[in-house]
């Protein structure tokens, strides 16, 4: 799908993946998450080959699918991920993405934007060093995008890293862009 791709990310860094539809942004994110094995080449963490178990404990991945159960309420969905996956304050995460009012609503009644917020609220559970976000701004309104960009800034201020794919302007300031079509890096 792509070859000769080389990039590095520093603490507090942000990398935006750009490219046409089908360029491989999602595949690259899944590869970085460890869901896909690379056909060739290596992924490294602190200049050492990636240990899959340790890697899983330091990343959060928000893909296209929201990983919500329609029959459970917003709070139940988030509480499950908190209990299953390392803990974290569910109420704070709900409040962080402006979902406190919808907390007791079954996820089947949410709008696309609210579903997205609920998926993103997982980021605010127990902190992880690396966020991998696949078009996180999709279906978010202006206020939601603002919330997301504040969450990313707070994460980066604590030394966290973020890789996200985006069409158009990504919701953050000061980032590197990796254009998969052109295989080029740029900083903005």
């Amino acid at each position: 799908m792509f070859r000769a791709l080389e990039f590095a990310l520093r603490p507090g860094g942000a990398l935006v993946l750009a490219g046409r539809n089908g360029a491989g942004k999602t595949s690259l994110l899944r590869l970085m998450a460890g869901l896909l094995p690379p056909a060739d080449g290596t992924l490294e963490w602190n200049a050492a080959p990636l240990d899959p178990d340790a890697h899983r404990a330091r990343l959060r991945y928000v893909g296209h699918a929201d990983a919500l159960k329609a029959a459970l309420t917003v709070r139940e969905n988030l509480s499950f991920w908190s209990a299953f996956d390392g803990g974290g304050d569910v109420d704070a995460a709900l409040a962080g993405f402006g979902l406190s009012a919808q907390a007791e609503a079954p996820a089947r009644f949410l709008s696309a934007g609210q579903r997205r917020r609920t998926a993103l609220a997982r980021l605010l559970l127990a902190p992880r060093a690396l966020w991998l976000l696949d078009e996180p701004g999709a279906s978010l309104d202006a206020a939601g995008t603002e919330t997301l960009s504040r969450a990313i800034e707070a994460h980066r201020a604590k030394g966290g890293m973020v890789v996200l794919s985006a069409h158009g302007t990504p919701p953050l300031a000061g980032y590197d862009t990796l254009d998969i079509d052109a295989l080029s890096m740029s900083t903005s």
Binding site: G34, R56, A57, Y61, G63, A65, A67, K69, F84, D85
Partner: peptide, 13 residues
């Protein structure tokens, strides 16, 4: 289908 499996696979559990 809903992406939960990815999250389960990516969990440190």
């Amino acid at each position: 289908e809903d992406g939960s499996l990815d999250q389960i696979l990516l969990s440190p559990q």
